[in-house]
């Protein structure tokens, strides 16, 4: 194990990520053995549907967790974005493109709200999350008069938006998602904003004493997260078309699970976009596998819950050992 850790190639990619990929492969083989239908292309495509929106949520929350904060309003906010923009589309006749912009904008606003309260008011992130979760659900319900909203089907005039995830059998969404993941990785690792987010997650006071406006950058992390949540909403409806008000909480945990499994530390300062991407694939595969085994969604809730606790515990253990 030690020798493996010192291997330069392993070091470059990161042992953690190699192990994650192994987990992914083992899971895939395991599901394929237990359920023969699992290997079919349509199964893979259906698992992909899950990857898209969850991936964007996970990417977003990675930025927030990198600052040492948390946002578990993302699921309901995503539904809020999809509902408000969808309602504009179906009931107020707003065309497709502006509707999508509305979706992203609503996410952006929630990001600003969360970030402002956390960064400038020092309100604990979990309280802000709880409040904005409720506000997201309430606003969406009020706006849509508690009706579910169905985005257009593929066959209708405005149905082209569904091509965002799939044209024929080509998973276009996968490429878009990976492109965004690369973009996020670039932002996190190559730009000033990412640098400051990671550094302030590690030691806010040292960054402040270096003459950096830490509040602004902390807020920026939440704004990025919110914006990505707005995009996630578009991919959610592209995959499933129908959204119901009052739901969305279960995705919080799954997004956070993808993120912490990938090696992003809850204590802040350490974040890995590639880890998050692999984590998201594992969660999506898990979801599809559980369905393939004939079990229902509830098992997934339990398993993701256990995964998050385990992943965070290993993170805590690792930090304890270092001290």
């Amino acid at each position: 194990m030690e020798a493996l850790k010192r291997n330069p190639l392993v070091k470059k990619i990161g042992l953690n990520r190699i192990l994650l990929v192994c987990v992914l492969i083992v899971m895939y083989i395991g599901f394929a053995i237990t359920s023969p239908t699992f290997l079919s292309y349509s199964r893979i495509l259906s698992a992909m549907n899950y990857v898209y929106f969850l991936g964007f949520l996970s990417l977003g929350v990675t930025f927030v967790i990198a600052t040492g904060g948390i946002d578990f309003s993302i699921g309901p906010v995503m539904f809020c974005c999809a509902l408000i923009s969808g309602y504009c589309l179906t009931s107020y006749g707003v065309p497709m493109v502006p509707a999508m912009i509305i979706s992203v904008f609503v996410g952006f606003l929630f990001g600003c709200f969360n970030g402002y309260l956390v960064a400038y008011w020092d309100i604990p992130p979990f309280i802000v999350s709880m409040a904005s979760m409720n506000i997201a659900k309430g606003t969406a319900s009020v706006f849509t008069k508690t009706q579910s909203v169905s985005w257009p089907q593929s066959s209708s005039a405005e149905g082209w938006y569904r091509n965002l995830i799939k044209i024929g059998n080509i998973p276009v969404g996968l490429f878009i998602f990976l492109a965004f993941a690369i973009l996020c990785a670039v932002i996190l690792n190559k730009t000033k904003i990412g640098r400051y987010i990671l550094c302030l997650g590690s030691n806010t006071e040292a960054v402040r004493l270096s003459g950096v406006n830490v509040k602004r950058w902390k807020m920026a992390a939440y704004v990025i997260c919110g914006t990505l949540v707005g995009i996630a909403a578009i991919f959610y409806v592209a995959a499933y078309t129908t959204v119901q008000p009052g739901y969305g909480d279960q995705y919080n945990n799954e997004a956070i699970a993808g993120c912490v499994m990938g090696g992003t530390s809850m204590a802040g300062g350490l974040a890995s976009i590639s880890g998050t991407v692999i984590g998201v694939f594992i969660i999506a595969l898990l979801q599809e596998g559980i369905l393939a085994l004939g079990l229902n969604k509830n098992y997934q809730l339990i398993i993701t819950g256990i995964i998050v606790i385990a992943a965070v515990y290993f993170d805590v253990l690792g930090r304890r050992r270092k001290n």
Binding site: I70, N253, N298, L301, I302, I309, V316
Partner: peptide
């Protein structure tokens, strides 16, 4: 483990468990 995370997880777990 941070309390909000623990209880967020048990929140999901109890939800699944009850249904199952």
């Amino acid at each position: 483990i941070p309390p909000f995370l623990v209880t967020l997880c048990t929140c999901m777990i109890t939800r699944g468990l009850g249904s199952i």
